[in-house]
Amino acid sequence: MSEKYNEIPMAGNIIEPGNSLKYKTGGWRAERPIHTDETCLWVKNGTCGRCWIFCPDNAVVLTEKDGKHAYAYNLEYCKGCGICANECPTQSIHMESESK
């Protein structure tokens, strides 16, 4: 962000497709999602995934290896909107203030 006016493309044009990945929106977050494996249906049997479907930033990371299901967040992009917590049918996600 230190470039001068003559070091950036004309008129705000984005000449590198997909470079929004470089824009780490995690810094916007006021609250972070806290996830509990015990009650999560994905961790339990690889079902549900509502948080993954609804996350607007692809920040919910669901993985499966050798029949074991793991749950994580990509906090570089999670804006802390809380949609995942709202959608979770088993109340396995709650939001906690970043200032804590």
Binding site: M1, E3, K4, Y5, N6, I8, M10, A11, G12
Partner: peptide, 9 residues
Amino acid sequence: DYYFEFKEQ
């Protein structure tokens, strides 16, 4: 962060 630089251009 960038708008002003485009006006400078």
